[in-house]
């Protein structure tokens, strides 16, 4: 509820309630109702949100990762992004997936490696990261032949 502030002159004033005054269970319920990108963006709002976001259990249908000669693409479903995320930085891909795996379970993960790629070392690290997910199915596709 409202916080009661008492000033030096003895006057009293009701302080404003903020989001962080809500019980944690309520904050988690609100964060759980955000779409996935908003939920992750909210981690940058404050330390409190960053910690609370970990308490939300996310369920996704699919994650599809494409390894293309000069980049990676990641599509998440359901997600409010209209187009796949295009990434040229392998560390960002791995760090993003590691963090997502902490509180997300997925029906199916698909990795597709397209003709012209040479990512044998990368694949091992990527696979290790993907094994952190609670997932029903992991499919790898190799178009290199």
């Amino acid at each position: 509820g409202d916080l009661l502030e008492i000033f030096d002159d003895g006057t009293e004033k009701r302080g404003e309630t903020t989001f962080m005054d809500l019980p944690d269970e309520m904050s988690i319920k609100i964060i759980a109702n955000l779409d996935l990108p908003s939920q992750f963006k909210m981690r940058r709002v404050s330390r409190g949100f960053n910690e609370l976001q970990l308490c939300v259990k996310n369920m996704l249908q699919t994650i599809e990762i494409k390894i293309i000669p000069d980049r990676y693409e990641m599509s998440i479903n359901p997600c409010s992004r209209n187009s796949p995320w295009q990434c040229h930085n392998y560390d960002e891909l791995i760090q993003g997936l590691r963090r997502l795996a902490l509180n997300t379970s997925i029906n199916r993960i698909t990795i597709r490696e397209e003709l012209g790629t040479d990512h044998i070392m990368i694949e091992d690290c990527l696979m290790d990261t993907l094994f952190n997910f609670e997932a029903d199915e992991l499919i790898t596709w190799n178009d290199k032949k």
Binding site: F19, I76, C79, D91, E92, R99
Partner: peptide, 28 residues
Amino acid sequence: MREILQLECDFTEEELAEIRKENAWCEN
């Protein structure tokens, strides 16, 4: 979001940079 929720950022620059990396898939 900070404006709506009336909250101040309490992260260090290093911490924010780390979260930005982890969030690149949904913010870039």
